[in-house]
Design a protein around this nucleic acid. Structure first.
Lengths: 256, 256
DNA sequence: ATATGTGAAGAGGTTCACAGCG
DNA sequence: CGCTGTGAACCTCTTCACATAT
């Protein structure tokens, strides 16, 4: 079944769905918490609740990794922690560089969650010469000039970009040229990268805008009936102007 | 509050897919950049490239909003900026509170992208009495005791949690009780909220773990042929032990 | 008796490819 | 002709429901 592979020559049988990969860290966190409380086994129901997903989804996710549970009992916590860690590649050490040590870069450098899971901040890099040498989170900031050397000497393959938007693409290109193949981008810009380089973006303002959309919708529902009526008027407007937007023209002058 | 909302009865015709909503801010950013360069119109192809998506997807997305383009020409930039802003609810002002003014909270408070798009930081809140009164990004930090009062007086419906994981759930409950119905969570915890409250989470460590997974996979492909061979051995192991994990037992002692 | 593992059905999202309009 | 708007095909992810194992 499902061998429909478009890309890769495919390490077949090993195709873990992207959506599942994105949830594994969640399960891992929940399992780690259980492990620290010395809980020996956990059911899909309990673990799913702790991870904030439903149990059918969790079981399906785990089924892609293998049959790690025991019917009638549940999952062995320690065993699962190890298997998921291995699957995610967290049993090895990942040196990471953070570029752009402003407020956000400093926050990232100080973030404990990095170090605790196989990630090691190999270097902090900033373009400001004033910053050079200053320690942030106990690590001295280095100047951008050193970027290529740092990547190379530390065997860094994962880079974090926390620069202003304007500098991000250029930094990205230097990282990639120096050998980085995975990038976590906090700058509010689309990064262009060659094939084979992974980019994930975290965008604060986008998340807020999505919330605003739903928030607006909630408010709108209270007057849902009124909207119903407005629609009749809308139909009339549409008849006059071929543009069929649901409602609301621009405030002032509008397009041809 | 407590508009015991189960799930939309669906304001039919207005059902914009979630995936589309998530991309609207992206389009909006690209359009804003074009607008600043006084570009009057743009084709789906050009805009898609700027937003980092493919053009078919973009056209489909816009089709949910209405027919805002002109065949043979493209889209009017200003008009689209307005329509998307309105759809996202950015034509109104959203007061936001940020709770937890550590490195991350400070970074968020200083982030220009907030103010520029209808969001206004109404208050910064921290549990540390030492912080009270200190200005961050020009806004004086207030103590957690004031939380309910601040939410109420400013009509805040969106809250940002940037506290340590341990404090997040409690802060969340206070925000919700005070009337907040949308939460952006930066703490590495699953938040439990009642129906009707939206939560979005941003998790730095999860993003890195997903990158690590793909990074590991890249490295693995170089030795894909070797893996092929290993599989034969694996098949033998599976025969002995009903656990059918793809490979790699735990380092030391293992489960029953 | 209980909880996993999984085919099968369903929902949602993406891509194709072209009709239709300016 | 050029570019939008969109049905239809396709693919991915989620949910259901139950056979299966301990």
């Amino acid at each position: 079944m499902a061998t429909g592979r478009t890309h890769r020559p495919a390490t077949r049988s090993r195709g873990i769905p992207e959506a599942t990969v994105a949830r594994l860290p969640l399960y891992l966190r929940a399992l780690t918490a259980l492990s620290e409380r010395s809980v020996p086994t956990v059911s899909s129901e309990e673990l799913a609740a702790a991870a904030g997903v439903n149990s059918a989804k969790l079981r399906k996710d785990f089924s892609y990794l293998g049959s790690y549970g025991t019917r009638g009992v549940g999952y062995d916590v320690e065993y699962l922690v190890y298997q998921i860690s291995r699957e995610l590649g967290l049993t090895q050490d990942w040196p990471v560089v953070i570029v752009g040590i402003g407020n956000l870069g400093a926050a990232l450098a100080n973030y404990g969650g990095f170090a605790s899971r196989g990630f090691r901040v190999a270097a902090l890099i900033d373009a400001d010469p004033e910053m050079a040498g200053k320690p942030v989170a106990g690590i001295p900031v280095q100047h951008t000039d050193e970027l290529e050397k740092i990547i190379d000497e530390n065997g860094v393959s994962i880079g974090v970009i926390a620069t202003p938007a304007g500098a991000a693409q250029q930094v990205c290109e230097r990282l990639v040229a120096a050998g980085v193949t995975s990038i976590l981008n906090f700058a509010p810009t689309v990064l262009n990268v060659p094939d084979g380089v992974d980019v994930r973006k975290v965008d604060l303002s986008i998340e807020l805008q999505i919330l605003a959309f739903h928030e607006q919708r909630k408010a709108g529902e209270e007057i849902a009936e009124a909207a119903e009526a407005a629609e009749a008027a809308e139909a009339a407007r549409t008849a006059r102007d071929p543009r069929k937007g649901p409602d609301g023209d621009m405030p002032a002058v509008m397009p041809a």
